[in-house]
């Protein structure tokens, strides 16, 4: 049994991303797939690191730093997280 919820797919990764993102969301923005980390949520590089570390804990995964530059939106992160969960726990 894996501690990660990954095997059942995208809804779990999405739920995890939204759950972890909650406390980091200091704006009044409603979180949707299209929500952008920098423009809409005012994330700076430091906050990104903290948030990713929290997400890694929550999903029991490692998110390589290499993938971060390509992730601009919540939806893109969900897809990436889902992929990593599948690779590491699938």
């Amino acid at each position: 049994m894996s501690a990660a919820p990954g095997s059942s797919g995208s809804s779990d990764a999405r739920a995890a991303v939204l759950e972890v993102l909650g406390p980091f969301n200091k704006t009044a923005v409603t979180l949707e797939d299209g929500t952008r980390f920098t423009e809409d949520l005012n994330f700076d590089s430091l906050l990104v690191m903290e948030f990713i570390a929290a997400l890694e804990d929550r999903l029991d995964i490692s998110v390589p730093l290499n993938v971060l530059p390509d992730i601009e939106t919540v939806g893109q992160l969900v897809v990436a997280a889902q992929e990593i969960v599948r690779e590491e726990h699938g």
């Binding site: 570390a53 029991d60 995964i61 490692s62 998110v63 390589p64 730093l65 290499n66 590491e88 726990h89």
Partner: peptide, 21 residues
């Protein structure tokens, strides 16, 4: 290379990440 960070001075966290790889 793929860059993975582990928690500062946390060998158990490193272990977890190596196990997954």
């Amino acid at each position: 290379a793929q860059i993975i960070r582990f928690k500062h001075n946390d060998a158990a966290d490193l272990d977890k990440r190596l196990a997954r790889l």
